[in-house]
Amino acid sequence: MARMKFLCDAERCIECNACVTACKNEHEIPWGMNRRRLITLKDGVPGERSISMACMHCNDPPCAGVCPVDCFYQTADGVVLHNKDLCIGCGYCFYACPFGAPQYPQTTNFGSRGKMDKCTFCTGGPEVDNSPEEYQKYGSNRLAEGKLPLCAEMCSTRALMAGDGDVLADIYQERSLRRGYGSGAYGWSTAYGNADKGRAFGPGASGTKGS
């Protein structure tokens, strides 16, 4: 069974925000709510990298673990969804989530923050697939239409990928092998730090191996 995953290739991401507005467009997300957003590390200095973040549809989602009303459920595709009719807007899931995915439409000192909203991997919610009711509460259900999340489908540089995790892993591996050089190689900076840009094997250097 295919396991749905997002994978953002930081070597490709240019922080153009297409994923963010594609999401807004597809689901008519109102102002102030962001199911997806860009995170940039080392902004403005060499080594700057960005990735696009949303709900990562964890295997063992901590949001579901802490929800007092048990409104979360996970589909056979591994997509983490929730039931807004059950949600009480307590905000626990926000604190549990390592990615800051849950969004709330309102804030009060006490009580509800409104119905939590988050990325559905374009898979709607508990209402009948692609019914107007489902759209009202959760946005469109592209997976049921045989498509993938629009953020990934529209990504400008094919940085953000969505789909069968095994396929995405293969694609990413192919890319890593192809890049094969210095800072492009997986784990290079972890092993050698940022100071060594891998110039000996760097782009354009003679004697590079591989294709």
Binding site: E28, P30, Q106, Q136, K137
Partner: peptide
């Protein structure tokens, strides 16, 4: 903002 993410059908 509207208090919930729930929207009118015709807005979709």
């Amino acid at each position: 903002l509207p208090a919930t993410m729930i929207r009118k059908a015709e807005a979709g």
